[in-house]
Design a protein around this nucleic acid. Structure first.
Lengths: 129, 129
DNA sequence: TTTTGATTACGAAATATTTCGTAGATAAAA
DNA sequence: TTTTATCTACGAAATATTTCGTAATCAAAA
């Protein structure tokens, strides 16, 4: 296969998150979602999405005049890639320390905690495939 | 107090990690540590550290000709700040999902897993104030 | 003393990222 | 048909980040 798309920048990631949540979308929709938090012009969003298309982070259907964009990278893969990098630069590679920091700083529901326990159990039973 | 130092960039974070690990250090030492992974010139490291001093990320002792730099932000606080941001942009704020992704991708020792279990138990007993 | 080596200061180039204005095309409304 | 609104393309400005060369200074070595 050809080279995989590069790491998304922070702005690009915001757009990816919207595409993951909404599925194939127009620039207009993405821009309106984005506008909830940020305030930038429409053409700024457009340009970013065009750049993302050039990088291979998104694909687009140009059949109709109004193009439809969709994520070309999976949420899980991207999160994995970003997490690995973040883990190295911010936590020196220690997943346990990151996990503890994350759990310590945020309230998690009982359900979430149980889910995590279940995962811990599974990991001990069948360590990494 | 005055405004707190801004979020460190990725390069700055690499330097902070060295300072956290080694304590007060010269530019020379930091640069040599940095050179294990990267290859950039000495003055590049120097300039970065000067910028960090201007931003308040590090402080320095200028008594001697060779200045001694030390981190002016704590490891825990910085990790917390970066994690919160990362959590929002990459995981939409779901700590549980991040934790699961982190645990899923990395081998953790039994000791680490037990530590995390202990933490989960504590969290349920006395939920975050 | 003179030379050599290491250091800081600093400006500026190189690169990466984000933002926006303008032009041209198409479709919808009047 | 004419006007108005919406869209894409694209260049370029604005900003942020990283890199480096050069000059000045000081201290140690010769």
């Amino acid at each position: 296969m050809s080279t995989s798309p590069p790491k998304p920048t922070e702005s690009e990631l915001e757009i990816l998150r919207i595409l993951w949540r909404h599925g194939p979308s127009t620039v207009r929709l993405v821009h309106e979602e984005l506008s909830r938090d940020k305030d930038a012009g429409y053409t700024t969003t457009l340009k970013l999405m065009q750049i993302m298309a050039a990088k291979g982070l998104v694909s687009r259907d140009e059949t109709a005049r109004t193009h439809i964009y969709q994520a070309a990278v999976s949420e899980a893969d991207t999160q994995k890639q970003l997490l690995n990098r973040f883990l190295d630069t911010a936590f020196g590679g220690s997943a346990a320390r990151l996990v503890m920091q994350a759990l310590g700083n945020h309230d998690a529901s009982k359900e979430e905690l149980d889910e995590i326990r279940k995962l811990l159990d599974q990991m001990e039973k069948r360590p990494k495939p």
